[in-house]
Structure formats: C-alpha cells, structure tokens
C-alpha cells in the first residue's frame, strides 16, 4: 500500500499508468487552487487563566526561509472580548481580517444588540474555513480564537485550514504545537487547573514559550505581540522584545554538523 495521503482514493499509477487528464476541457488540466502558503507566520500560543485568556505570536512574516517582513501584527482585536491569532499564510490572514472587519461594521449598526463573543466568532470562522476547504480552495491558516464566551467565561479554541476545530485550556499552532504545548501543559494540564492560574502566571508562561520558540524555531523572531482578554477588555501590546535570553544551552547541543568536542 502507498502510505502517502495524496495517493489515497485514486487509481494506482503502477497498475493504471499516470493519471491522464486529457478529458478535461481546459488545456492546463484540472483547476487548481492554492497548493501551499507563500508568505507565512509561524506559531501562535495561547493559554486560559482564572479570568481570561492570554495569546501571543511573533511579528515575523517569512518568505520560505527568508525573514521577509519583521513588523507583521498577527494578533487582531475583533472587539472588547475577542482576539484572533493567525498562523500560516499572511495574505489569507489579511483576507480574513477584512472579512472580520466587515462583520464588525455590520454588528455595530445596532448599538442595542449584544456584540459577538469569542464563541460566536469561533463558530463563524470555523464555518468559513470548512466551506473553503470543501471548495478545495482553503484559507491556509491555523487560527486561535481567544476571549470570553456568552457567560463571560474564558474561551479558547482553534480552527484550521481543514475546518477542524479544537478546544483546550492551552493551545498552540505550527511549531508551537510541538514545542510550546508540552510546556504549557505542565502548568495547565486540564480545565480544572485553569482556576488556579493567575493572569501574571499565564503571561509568564506564554512569554517563556515565546522564548523557547525563538531558540528552536528558525522561522521565528525575538519581537512579538501579546494580548490578554478579560472582563476589563483587551490589553494588546504589539511590540514586545524577547528578554533574558541565554544561549548557553546551545553548547550542549550535539548531532548537527561538525563537533570539536
């Protein structure tokens, strides 16, 4: 069996020959949409605490391995109760940002109705992502939606380019899902432990994760945005410098390239 997912559900080349799309009317073969992201942002990390959520993402947009743009804000405040963090393709993020902007304008036509909360927005964005992937034209992003739900309780959930949704007291996208998530789970293993975490603890935890990510993720940078969402509103700092770095551990790394000792 061929274990590559792209081979699943189609005739085997070794038996039937390469797929012949000559029967398509278009000369170029079947219609193709985005096959890969172009300019990308890396991890977004977020954690719930006692009375809110903290979320962070660095300010880098990479073009392949080139650090192309160094002041890209990947946390977008929707209103006083929701912040969305974007990983993945930057132009798709800009599209989604405009989509959220037009939604916000419509929502504010009536000053008397309740504003959309984080849960509402997550449902909406998950629908958008799923619709696009079902059209075979995905928005190449992994989103974290952080804020408060209808009962003003902390809310944190993700939606990705496949339309998959997931919720957890701590979440991270991209490289962070491998590197930051285990660190955060040490402090916040489950929903029950959220009530014991203060805002300061959560911010410290997420900042620690940003540092680890900068150490080990070659598509990251040392300048990032961080936001906390509580009943008091959104506190967003888009220009935080990574501090107290110590590269001493680099000495200990073995196994890559030439070693002298």
């Amino acid at each position: 069996m061929n274990h590559l997912p792209q081979a699943w559900g189609r005739p085997r080349d070794d038996i039937y020959g390469a797929y012949d799309h000559a029967h398509f009317q278009t000369a170029a073969g079947p219609n193709q949409h985005t096959q890969s992201p172009i300019v990308t942002g890396t991890s977004v990390v977020a954690a719930k605490f006692k009375d809110g959520v903290v979320i962070a993402a660095d300010n880098l947009a990479s073009y392949g391995s080139l650090a192309r743009f160094t002041d890209v804000k990947r946390l977008r405040k929707f209103n006083e109760t929701v912040v969305v963090g974007f990983g993945g393709d930057v132009s798709d993020m800009q599209y989604l940002d405009r989509l959220l902007n037009s939604l916000d304008i419509r929502e504010n036509y009536s000053s008397t109705d309740d504003p959309l909360n984080a849960k509402n927005l997550h449902t909406y964005l998950a629908k958008v992502m799923y619709k696009r992937r079902s059209d075979f034209n995905p928005l190449w992003n992994h989103l974290l939606i952080a804020g408060l739900d209808g009962e003003s309780k902390p809310f944190l959930a993700s939606a990705d380019l496949l339309g998959t949704t997931f919720s957890s007291p701590t979440l991270a996208t991209g490289f962070g899902a491998h590197l930051a998530q285990p660190i955060m789970r040490r402090t916040i293993p489950d929903e029950n432990s959220v009530k014991d975490v203060s805002k300061e603890d959560a911010v410290k935890l997420v900042k620690e994760c940003m540092k680890v990510l900068f150490y080990r993720d070659a598509r990251s940078m040392d300048k990032y945005s961080i936001a906390t969402i509580t009943k008091e509103g959104v506190e967003l700092d888009e220009n935080v410098q990574l501090e107290n770095q110590s590269w001493a551990f680099a000495e200990q790394i073995r196994g890559y390239g030439t070693q002298t000792a």
């Binding site: 947009a61 743009f69 002041d71 890209v72 804000k73 800009q94 599209y95 940002d97």
Partner: peptide, 10 residues
C-alpha cells in the same frame, strides 16, 4: 492617514 483594510504592518 488610515491603514489599508487588512494591513498588518507599516
């Protein structure tokens, strides 16, 4: 001077 909608950096 307003940012263009969707603008994420200067």
């Amino acid at each position: 001077e307003l940012p263009v909608d969707g603008q994420v950096g200067a």
